[in-house]
Write a protein that binds this DNA or RNA. Sequence first.
DNA 1: ATCATAACGCGACCTGTGTCGCATTATGAG
DNA 2: CTCATAATGCGACACAGGTCGCGTTATGAT
Lengths: 214, 214
Amino acid sequence: MSMPDRQPLKQLESTLSDEPIRRPGGRSARIRTAVLDATLAELADVGYDRLTVEAIAARSGVHKATLYRRWGGVDGLIADVLVRSAEQPWQVPDTGSLRDDLHAITRVIYMGFTDPEHGAVPRNLIVAALRSSQAARALTGFFETQHGLAAEVVTRAVRRGEAPEGTDAVDVVRTACAPLYYRLFVTGEPLEEVAAHRAAEAALAAAQAGAFVR
Amino acid sequence: MSMPDRQPLKQLESTLSDEPIRRPGGRSARIRTAVLDATLAELADVGYDRLTVEAIAARSGVHKATLYRRWGGVDGLIADVLVRSAEQPWQVPDTGSLRDDLHAITRVIYMGFTDPEHGAVPRNLIVAALRSSQAARALTGFFETQHGLAAEVVTRAVRRGEAPEGTDAVDVVRTACAPLYYRLFVTGEPLEEVAAHRAAEAALAAAQAGAFVR
DNA sequence: ATCATAACGCGACCTGTGTCGCATTATGAG
DNA sequence: CTCATAATGCGACACAGGTCGCGTTATGAT
């Protein structure tokens, strides 16, 4: 699991509240780390259904009243975990070919969610975010960021002439990713590698055919 | 939090269990209708977050203990609503052209969820189903049914030679629908008509390019 | 029509989430 | 270092969600 990163409470403040943080010093930061780590651990262990503030409090060694005061409840905790997760950037592929880039993207998603060892963590995190209206808002921002980053591969491809001018880069990314999330979190179908492969291939074909030209 | 598994879930049993229905007579049926209607109404009014068994009991005029006995809680209610909803079939388009059929499908989805008057009902229902692990299972069955029906348009198109032999019909449908559900329920982005248009166009292009050939 | 009982109504009661007031500790400024 | 106070610890408790036992009503078989 990711370890002690000392982050100022700025992010939490900017997404959850407008009030200034008065004492961003050591203790608050330590408690935030401990609590969010405990939240992720609980999430991986018991999932969202049985996720309780008390268990997180016990696991982190922080009193539950503190959790309610700072995060307001389970939803706020999930949202803050998402904020922290979104801050860890990833390497956008740049293979020189749109096909390979798209395949790399869908493959990263596929691997991340289906890894038998660590896949439960992001999977349960997304499920949890989908089940909380507050965290769902944080999730929207998360995807906006990820889409923006990933769209770069399409922008480059257009410059190389691999896709028509005027192609909506983000829409290509959406089309590539959507089937994976659709299966995992909407229809509940199993996610296999061939699905990731086909999603990338479909997005590529559609982009080349000009389906995303504005 | 322990749920006695041996509860008679009545109609729900026909899809989830093998237990026989002992008294399907008038009263039980009336109560089921009243309760599920109240559930949908509450869902449309207050959404899943503020959905409570007590409110549904009050609205339907049925005692809450009865609701807990028959449905086990909010999750079971949502699941049963889904089962009842899935029983109302829809007219699969058959325009003679794969492009028009796919556009008709994505358009139906778009219209159903974005209708300013009645769109909140199916929207909140899906959200509710996504937020309950029990109802999520019912949702999986729901989509399996819908996909199977919709895939017919692709099967016919293959016969007409509009798509390559060996095309995975359901995968074409998934690719057409996924971006809509992705926006609505995963990323939380607004769903506009152009998105429905592009999704159909993308699925068509990918199918014609052979991206879904097994 | 009669009867056994499935299904429901009713209200008390249990459980645990979330709140509140106050005590205690840690932080940052002077 | 000292001090004001932000932040957390602590336990009591209010209250909604959910359960249970029993009485009542409706159902279907005889």
